[in-house]
Design a protein around this nucleic acid. Structure first.
Lengths: 196, 196, 196, 196
DNA sequence: TATGAATGAGCTTTCATTCAT
DNA sequence: GATGAATGAAAGCTCATTCAT
């Protein structure tokens, strides 16, 4: 079989397994069974269990990062607010459409390996930086309230992360990305409490 | 040595070790060295490495839960908003004052054991329920905007969780709970974006 | 408490425990619980778990050996056959009256310790020697058939040992020593098969 | 190496080790050294030290059981007595030719595991049942004396078991199965004592 | 004499990874 | 490329024994 194809097959099997049992509880054996291949074959394509996990996690965070568009302030660009809303909506859509990977990223990727912790940290830092950039532009444009931008970026990211738990927790009835996005964006826009 | 005291000593040593290396990387050996005791002594007081972790995690989540006060709506109670703010501030204070445990809870406690995952899930569910209760009261009092309460509760919790990453990341310079709390509460109150 | 008394108490507790769980499955903890004493107290009176077992086993084999009377051939002694029968009957009686110890001796005392294996081997060798002596006298008196005395002694001993399994196996209904003895002696006397 | 072959090799090594040191004193390490394999290899083929022992014991008792032929009473069958004698002789031959396993079965297999105790109990019960069947047929044919069949079966089994101790004890000079069998059968036929 | 907390050697077992076929 | 038997480091844990009080 084509090497690239085989890799994909293994990554896919690993995705199922990690999603089902978590990284530590999952054994290489589980992945082999899921993929229907032999032990040696696995190590022919990946250096280690960790590597597959890294690939899985890395490609997901990449996909996410690629969908966060830098806000543009050129005259013909859409309103900054719309761009920011678009980012959140796009992320939610990807996350909801890949709930297994989302679960892995949110619940299973910490404490496996200092390397992953660092990578994941960098991912979140990048996301935060992008959010902060957006917010700065937004403030310049007057569409973002004067506020502590660092904290605000964490509020946005944290809200998105936590809100995903609703979707993860909802076993059978899938949650609509649209509806959830609207509710979330409404809150991010207007705040929770009534302004004093 | 008194048995209760010894237990505390072991839990304390484990806390150091788990905080330093994470649950999986930490060995019982590490805990023994940290506590300066023999293998048998450890197992005299705890059934397993998992159990110590459970105690550590459980007592922290208990402490947190105990500091979330149900909002009171009796005539002589303080304003609901103040009560909610108080809860957030109290939590932030505990979290910041126990950064190692906070790190363990946020980064290290998933995927160790289905049991812990469940317990932690319950903890977050409880917290969310309390937040939702507060928000409902708040809406009745007119101090909370009409909004999707479930999503709003996740926004609040997610914000607190994510904001703690700022503190965890800030290695040397300790972040002031007060300052952070104010910034966070300002955002939760007023929202991030300017209302359309 | 009197030291000798305490020893007896411990030995008695150990007897219960060993009988119930066997030597290996029994822990010192079990004995402590059964005796209602503390760990240190046990080791104050016995060097080790093995020692208590040794005492238990030794005193039982001693009691048994003491009840095997050397056959007397003085003119006024009872018939040799009666003396031999008496020995078997006495042994059966003791064994049946101390089924727990019998069980321990027959089922639990091998493979614990080379020392015990040796001691037990010596015990059986002694018994065999006594039987052989009896048989020799018996042959001289014409009450024992000409036969391979060594093998015959093993037949006698083996029969007694195996027959005890009936009693051990009979959980509730106690087997009468008398009845069993008679059946056994009948067989030892007349053989199983009809002589060609 | 072929998996079945490797299993056999391990069982064989275990047999040597158990025979030399007894079950409890034997460590898995000993078996590894004897077999010249690595720790993991052992556990690749067996779940535990107990399992290998079980296999060893089980295959030996099976071999023994398979060599106890039900007595046939068809007209053209050999005399019942000859069939019974044949059984005893066949057993003795196997036991003597596998003295190490015999030693293990007689001296080392009690108290290791309730499971083994039960299995061994069942084995002896089966053997006893077969003996009893033979004796019943023998009585009907008039070649077995009227006697308590249950006790008689224990006398036969016990004699065989105990007589094996002669062979086990005789370190260097191997005992002839033939000679021993003849002496034993002579005694089982004619009894020890002269009939009153 | 009595206590029970402390000890630590040594056990069984797991599982990611290697390597000869 | 593919296989799967073999590896062995490293883990968690038990329990007979010791010792300070």
């Amino acid at each position: 079989m084509n090497s690239a194809l085989r890799r994909k097959q293994i990554v896919y099997a690993a995705r199922q397994v990690f999603s089902r049992k978590g990284y530590h509880a999952a054994t290489v054996e589980d992945i082999l069974t899921e993929a229907g291949i032999a032990r040696g074959t696995f190590y022919l394509h990946f250096k280690s269990k960790r590597e597959v996990f890294g690939v899985l996690l890395g490609s997901f965070t990449s996909a996410l990062e690629m969908n966060i568009k830098r806000v543009s302030t050129t005259p013909d660009a859409p309103p900054v607010l719309d761009q920011m809303m678009g980012n959140v909506e796009r992320l939610l859509t990807i996350l909801i459409n890949n709930l297994d990977l989302t679960r892995i990223m949110l619940h299973e990727s910490r404490g496996i390996d200092p390397d992953f912790d660092r990578k994941l940290g960098e991912f979140y830092d990048n996301v935060l930086a992008l959010i902060q950039l957006s917010l700065k532009h937004g403030q310049e444009m007057g569409v973002v309230r004067p506020c502590d931008i660092e904290v605000a970026s964490h509020v946005v990211l944290g809200s998105v992360r936590q809100v995903m738990e609703i979707v993860i927790g909802a076993k059978k009835r899938p949650v609509s990305a649209d509806q959830l996005g609207r509710a979330l964006l409404d809150l991010l826009a207007g705040g929770v409490f009534v302004r004093a």
